[in-house]
Design a protein around this nucleic acid. Structure first.
Lengths: 221, 221
DNA sequence: AATCGGTTTGACCGATCGGTGAAGATGCGC
DNA sequence: GCGCATCTTCACCGATCGGTCAAACCGATT
């Protein structure tokens, strides 16, 4: 297993960076290899010289993000201490990672919402985090049902990542920039407050259950 | 303003349905007009006869979803009664809509995460809901800061929609089908529990504030 | 100067893309 | 029967797509 192209050549790294930038904006099918070459300032054939095909090139782009995401959180999920502190640390690590990789939310949402080409890869990177969540929340949440770890995991994933993808849409509606440092800090505080509030809720649930059964209105369509 | 093609001709409706099905799977750039024609069982030129171009066809697909989403929720946001009940009704309406329109979560996430072509349209459809959230939560939440309505709105949007887009990825990890009726009912109960818990948190916040300032670790990258 | 491995280029390929225009079908009032 | 408007098909277009290949370039070695 030799080193990937972008570690052997600075030119290859420029090509990969160009592919990265374009992918977030227009999606896999929307980018042409000519676009990538032009943005990188090289001949189109050179892109095929380093990365052998379009799928290999963009697989490489995404693999790096998946691995970086997992690496960024693996430190935090190995930590010790009270559950509450561990949760806050993981939240912070996730938010840090996203703020350092601004294109990540849109990229992964594209892959998740698009075809299932990358689902297996994403699943492998999400599995350790899901496992951590199940071990962690087993202290305060039931193993099954509406309060199980899997629901809490998906819920917090959504809370975190949705802000960044919707920011571009809702920003103009809010009158200030959702991506500015003060706005990001405010969002961070919100997520932490949500973590505390959910933990409080889980704890009081074990004392005085209030989880009603919500059959929900049967869709009358 | 005459009626749209799919209301004048059953064939046009079939074409639109075909475009709808394909869009969710492979995205706008991934679908060819030949694919649409083939799936609809008509000649390619006929697609251009009813819908004049590719962008018009898929704009029509998405416009219908945006309008249907807004219509499905507009009844619920006009309701009266205690805040808690109103919130649960909106949540149920949103979940009902998604369960009746299974492709919607992936479609809108594609549009939000992809280019900004449709952001203006999405914004127009989200604006009334955002306004409702601001009016509604003004009873129990501060107007600005980490607990402002905008954060709660984005948070619940993420909680609801993220389950459906991640279900396809995480399903195999969970060992049961996240889209089965029992799983959907369980998720519905989870979202309602989250709504109750957040409302509880907001109420106790006004009595005994516990929102700490989370400067968050400055990214040391 | 010759040569050699790695790098970069220009020209080219077949396939597919969105889109067009003219020629058939088809149904209907007359 | 004939006209007429709507619906549907067929054949075709230029542009762009991902990908290939041989030739040129280049610095280092001998």
């Amino acid at each position: 297993m030799r080193a990937p192209p972008e570690e052997r050549s600075a030119t290859a790294a420029r090509i990969l960076e160009a592919a990265d930038e374009l992918l977030a904006d227009v999606g896999y099918e929307g980018v042409s290899m000519r676009d990538v070459a032009e943005r990188a300032g090289v001949n189109k054939a050179l892109v095929f010289y380093y990365f052998n095909s379009k799928v290999e090139l963009f697989d490489r782009v995404l693999e790096r993000y998946y691995a970086a995401h997992l690496a960024a959180l693996s430190g935090a999920i190995e930590g010790t201490g009270p559950l509450r502190e561990r949760l806050h640390r993981v939240v912070d690590a996730y938010l840090d990672f996203i703020e350092e990789n601004r294109r990540y939310p849109r990229l992964i949402q594209q892959q998740v919402a698009g075809g299932d080409t990358h689902h297996e890869l994403i699943r492998r990177n999400l599995a350790p985090l899901m496992g951590w969540a199940e071990r962690t929340f087993s202290e305060v949440a039931p193993l099954t049902g509406p309060l199980a770890a899997r629901h809490i995991f998906v819920t917090f994933s959504g809370i975190v990542i949705n802000y960044y993808t919707y920011a571009a849409v809702l920003g103009p509606l809010w009158g200030d920039d959702p991506a500015s440092p003060p706005s990001l800090a405010e969002r961070r505080a919100h997520v932490h407050w949500m973590a505390d509030t959910v933990l409080d809720g889980l704890e009081s649930e074990s004392v005085a259950p209030r989880l009603r059964s919500y059959p929900g209105p049967a869709p009358t369509a």
